[in-house]
Nucleic acid binder design. Sequence first.
DNA 1: CTGATTTTGATAATCATTATCAATTAAATT
DNA 2: AATTTAATTGATAATGATTATCAAAATCAG
Lengths: 143, 143
Amino acid sequence: MVWKRISQKLEENEYRLTPQREVILQVMIDNRGKHLSADEVYIEARGKSSNIGIATVYRTLEKLASIEVLYKTIFEGGKYRYELSLGETHQHHHIICLQCGNISEVEEDLLHNLEIHLEKKGYKILDHELKFYGYCPQCNSKK
Amino acid sequence: MVWKRISQKLEENEYRLTPQREVILQVMIDNRGKHLSADEVYIEARGKSSNIGIATVYRTLEKLASIEVLYKTIFEGGKYRYELSLGETHQHHHIICLQCGNISEVEEDLLHNLEIHLEKKGYKILDHELKFYGYCPQCNSKK
DNA sequence: CTGATTTTGATAATCATTATCAATTAAATT
DNA sequence: AATTTAATTGATAATGATTATCAAAATCAG
């Protein structure tokens, strides 16, 4: 299901599915919903295959983001993070727990109103990204 | 008006207003509403006084952000940017023009609903940040 | 199979940021 | 006012993340 969509994207872009790329993609799929940095992907990929260079990881993540298989973003902390980008809609609304660092997603709907408002003012909105910072339910109850 | 608030914050935190810091703050005030990176601040500060080191700029921006005189954020492009933080409410909702790079602000209200929703689920929300990517009215009309 | 093209991995280079530390400046104490 | 104490500065080294380079390996097309 996921692989089907990915293979199609790769094909469209004449982008080969090499063993290294397959491992990297598998890491991203195994971590669906999480937001991994290049070095985290590297470590997990090494665990799976042991012959992947860090340069390949950077290149592959970058390329996969450029064809929208992955979504690339940057949080406080200053390094890029990647997550599997499923479906067509942009769902980049994150809740970041300031205690445990856990990152989860937020629903879309309400934001739509804001977009409409901005478009009325003459803006053309192509994408958006919402980040909430606070404590997740677990951490919050432990205080 | 702005200076009054800033001086107070500095005092509260036993944080001296040195000539270098004054220049840096003046740069931030002159660029109210803009989002400057450390090197941009450095260049403009040099223009004003010519004896400020880049290390001092980094240190000062960091310190000013820690006492909430500045707001620190990071956009695609991988470097931190600072803007003058006025008033008490968090207004970190940005519209980033993908063409000219212009960054402007979005109103608050609607987001409040989302926060309430999340708090009902057990989250404790301390801050949030919304980024829209698209074209600003000027760039949009030129297409 | 052979030559052309893409991809890889090691490593060097770069860019932003942080740490170090001696020298300077300002504040507090005498 | 002089002296001690603490904070701040600037130059520069160190770090961490990312990108560029380039020869070798893998893959593709004819």
